[in-house]
């Protein structure tokens, strides 16, 4: 059980959570922008949509890189087991992220319609499939994996036709699409903004439906997900934040305060990430064969020395990371204007 001896392990569990939340919040809107970009009717509109994330997407993706690197360093066993178990899913995510990156980059380099349509298609498909698979993997982690005594995935016992991960995958798509639509509303003007305004409502409606479905599913099918809430009742505050944030989105949109709507959708994603953390804590990967074989923050961590060094690195590095992020978002804030240097 938890003692002071393991405070470093807990710190890294929380830090990984922060990194994952950072990724969800930041890349969430640019994945969402990718999912929504077929909304655009003309090439100019598409360019505005792509340029809204143009300077930002690769900085956002660095959060994923950092998350994976930090997981590798702080909990090598979890990194090894999770990444090898989700081999096929991760390979598809990688292909999707590659195509996303290059379709943003290559699209603008030729004017031919077929060229642009091809990269637009790639951009949409890669965004939506990467988002779905992220959600799918989270759903699988909720259910647990058939981990045997050798701490390896027991392939034969793995069932790939579970419904729950599909639902969480859909939730990821709905969340990102909503988050992305609010972001786009902030970055666009005129007729395009009007259309996106409608899409804010559509995506919000879809999000609410999938959210309720996921909640019911989680509460009825996965009893372990709420165990920590019962044990530490103060954690209900996270649930409260989640519900309030979700409720505040339509309010802010209705009051024409998209800035607050965006803050609320950031809070929604952060709360969802926190709930995921609460649901699995102190485990990373629950063994569906024998809960005793689960990988948790105690049995899968790196050495104390490395956890300490890494914490120092994080403490030294994070202020810099935050200041770069602030500078970049400051330079590029405001409505998208297509200029000479745009995609």
């Amino acid at each position: 059980m938890f003692t002071a001896e393991y405070s470093m392990n807990l710190a890294w569990f929380i830090l990984l959570g922060i990194l994952l939340t950072g990724y969800g919040v930041l890349d969430g809107f640019d994945l969402g922008v990718g999912i929504l970009h077929p909304v655009a009717k003309t090439d100019e509109e598409r360019r505005i949509i792509i340029n809204s994330i143009g300077p930002l997407w690769d900085g956002n993706e660095v959060w994923l890189v950092t998350f994976a690197g930090a997981l590798f360093a702080a909990f090598p066993d979890v990194y090894a087991l999770a990444f090898s178990s989700f081999y096929t899913n991760l390979m598809i995510i990688l292909f999707a992220l590659i195509f996303r990156a290059v379709s943003i980059e290559f699209r603008s380099k030729h004017k031919a319609v077929i060229w642009r349509q091809f990269w637009d298609g790639c951009f949409f498909l890669s965004s939506i499939s990467a988002t779905f698979l992220f959600g799918y993997i989270v759903g699988q982690l909720f259910l647990g994996l058939p981990i045997d005594a050798q701490l390896e995935l027991h392939k034969e016992k793995m069932s790939f036709i579970e419904l729950y991960p599909v639902v969480t995958g859909l939730l990821a798509i709905a969340t990102c699409a909503m988050h992305g639509s609010i972001f786009l509303y902030l970055k666009t003007e005129g007729e395009l903004q009007e259309r996106i305004h409608n899409w804010m409502w559509h995506t919000y409606g879809i999000f609410i439906m999938v959210y309720i479905m996921t909640t019911i599913f989680t509460l009825t099918q996965i009893p372990s997900a709420t165990a920590n809430l019962t044990r530490y009742p103060w954690l209900w505050s996270v649930v409260m934040v989640n519900v309030l944030a979700i409720g505040n989105i339509p309010r802010a949109v209705f009051l024409k305060r998209p800035g607050y709507a965006f803050l609320s959708s950031i809070a929604t994603i952060a709360a969802l990430a926190a709930l995921f953390g609460i649901a699995i804590f102190p485990n990373f990967i629950v063994s569906s064969i024998d809960p005793g074989l689960s990988l948790n923050i105690y049995n899968s961590a790196a050495s104390k020395g490395t956890l300490k060094t890494m914490l120092l690195i994080a403490v030294l590095g994070l202020p810099f990371v935050i200041s770069y992020t602030v500078i970049v978002y400051w330079v590029f804030h405001g409505k998208v204007k297509l200029g000479k240097f745009s995609y």
């Binding site: 950092t66 690197g69 930090a70 702080a74 890494m310």
Partner: peptide
């Protein structure tokens, strides 16, 4: 892993 994380 720590080198990779530091790199990031």
């Amino acid at each position: 892993g720590s080198a990779l994380a530091a790199e990031a």
